[in-house]
């Protein structure tokens, strides 16, 4: 079986009259790192959220390792919502990291990581604590296991959130602007963890504004505007040789702002 890890075919989505996604095709292979870039409001976060069905899509297919997520196709072209249980089973395999971390504030770092292991993977308290400790060490927070989120910096909180997703041993990881809410000097530590994940062969789909990171770590870049993928290819192609005016304009603004 060589199905791509993530495969989107003609994905469409509207919020009322507003069409956010207009037939998006995208595939992410095993161990591939793909960055989604584009102006705000272009639909990149919505697209990412469709991959684990936190957001439902209206048309097209989103397949994870060959399996349609969110819906069940019946004979005769009828489509009905997937059972909640099957959807949960699929979500277990898809790690997600949010812009605002979304840690549970009433739990310590280690409990944040251990909680899903106990409730979803069915580990005992001891097993979950062991795995959580190992995951926190991996993101460089072995010493802060018993701190509450409010006692951690934004960068540390985001690393706990990454550990929480990783501990589930997902097949792939989704990142929704993981560094956008961070102070500039805390961005590096989070990107470093993501870089090492990529090096270990994790399949990753990342919405980001960190162009330098995208250029160095991504295997492919997809540029989204107005709910469509306008250009796609290796970083070198998108950043330097894109023929699309919209892409060039976007990158030019970016370049102007970040050079001094």
């Amino acid at each position: 079986m060589n199905a791509p890890m993530i495969e989107l075919v003609g994905v469409g989505k509207s919020f009322g009259a507003h069409e956010v996604l207009r037939g998006v095709d995208l595939s992410v292979g095993r161990s591939e790192v793909v960055c989604l870039i584009g102006p705000s409001g272009s639909g990149k976060s919505t697209l990412l959220r469709c991959v684990n069905f936190l957001e439902s899509y209206d048309s097209g297919d989103v397949r994870i390792d060959g399996r349609l997520i969110g819906y069940q196709d019946l004979p005769g072209g009828v489509r009905k919502p997937m059972s909640a249980r099957r959807l949960r089973e699929m979500r277990r395999e898809i790690g997600m990291v949010f812009q605002h971390f979304n840690l549970w504030p009433h739990m310590t770092a280690i409990s944040n990581v251990a909680e899903p292991l106990r409730r979803v993977r069915g580990l005992t308290a001891g097993e979950a604590a062991d795995r959580a400790t190992a995951m926190l060490s991996r993101v460089g927070l072995g010493g802060r296991a018993h701190a509450y989120p409010s006692q951690l910096s934004g960068g540390q909180q985001q690393r706990v959130a990454i550990a929480r997703a990783l501990a589930m041993q997902p097949q792939l990881m989704l990142f929704d602007e993981p560094t956008s809410a961070l102070d500039p000097e805390l961005v590096g530590e989070v990107l470093e963890v993501m870089r090492s994940l990529a090096a270990e062969g994790m399949t990753m789909l990342i919405v980001t504004h960190e162009m330098g990171f995208a250029a160095h770590v991504a295997d492919r870049i997809a540029f989204i505007d107005g709910g469509r993928i306008i250009d796609e290819g290796p970083p070198r192609h998108v950043f330097h040789h894109s023929q699309e005016p919209r892409v060039r304009q976007f990158l030019q603004t970016y370049h102007d702002r970040n050079s001094f």
């Binding site: 979500r91 277990r92 790690g95 949010f98 979304n102 840690l103 899903p116 409730r119 929480r164």
Partner: peptide, 23 residues
């Protein structure tokens, strides 16, 4: 976001209620 995080790791509605929403 706290509920979304629990949803994204595949927690069941009852667990989300007891462990995230209620506290």
């Amino acid at each position: 976001g706290q509920i979304e995080a629990a949803t994204s790791v595949g927690m069941a509605p009852f667990d989300i209620l007891m462990r995230v929403t209620l506290p």
